[in-house]
Amino acid sequence: MKNRTLTFSIFRYNPATPEIKPHMQSYQLDETTGMTVFVALNRIREEQDPSLMFDFVCRAAICGSCAMLINGKPRLACKTLTRDYGSKITLMPLPVFKLIGDLSVDTGTWFRHLSIKTRAWIHTNKEFDPKALEERMDNATALEIYEPERCIECGCCIAGCATANIREDFLGAAGLNRVARFMVDPRDHRTEQEYFEVVGSDEGVFGCYGLMACDDNCPTQLPLQWQLAFVRRKMAVAGLKR
């Protein structure tokens, strides 16, 4: 295979220097075997422009830091091979989230807000007994909980979601997937009605248009359509009961 020269068109803006308006900047780079966008960005920063800002930690699609719009689609830079693309690749920061600079966005604040809003922890009236044996859970339930727990909070589903792009208060697939996880957890003692108060509105599950950009763009292939439909059915039943 002949080595290609790739052109990266990258969004540049640093809030610390607001006099320089947001713009696209081009960088050229020789493609190497098995190159990912993450590798390319590191080489650009090392060899061409040390001021380029982007996030990464694990480079193995586990930490969810390097999510960005690659040719418009939300992707993890570390999981995206340049050979799957043409010689011109456009990189933009994820929308919805607060921009830190260039390709770096603050997903942490958004997800923390989500955790607080959905009260994403086990709610129980049981007194904790440190000496007692842990209660057993059947395998099927455990799997149902651990599947949505695979979410790495990269923000791709939020960036791809039309509703989340239009209305700020929408919980999005990541939020509803999180709630779904607690709904099946037998240790959580919240009632259907209490869940309904949190997600039974247009801010929650009924705000979903069903466009499934979340499902199509999830880097960990979470069954988001299944999760959203599950929450929707559950909340419809809860809402109609009373």
Binding site: R119, H123, E194, E197, G200, F206, M235, A236
Partner: peptide
């Protein structure tokens, strides 16, 4: 009582099930 994040202010003056009814309609 469990703290479930329900805001009491929102419980008055608005049918909390309206979004569901509209979606079903």
């Amino acid at each position: 009582m469990l703290d479930t994040g329900i805001s009491p202010q929102r419980s008055i003056g608005r049918n909390p099930r309206m979004d569901l009814y509209l979606d079903l309609a």
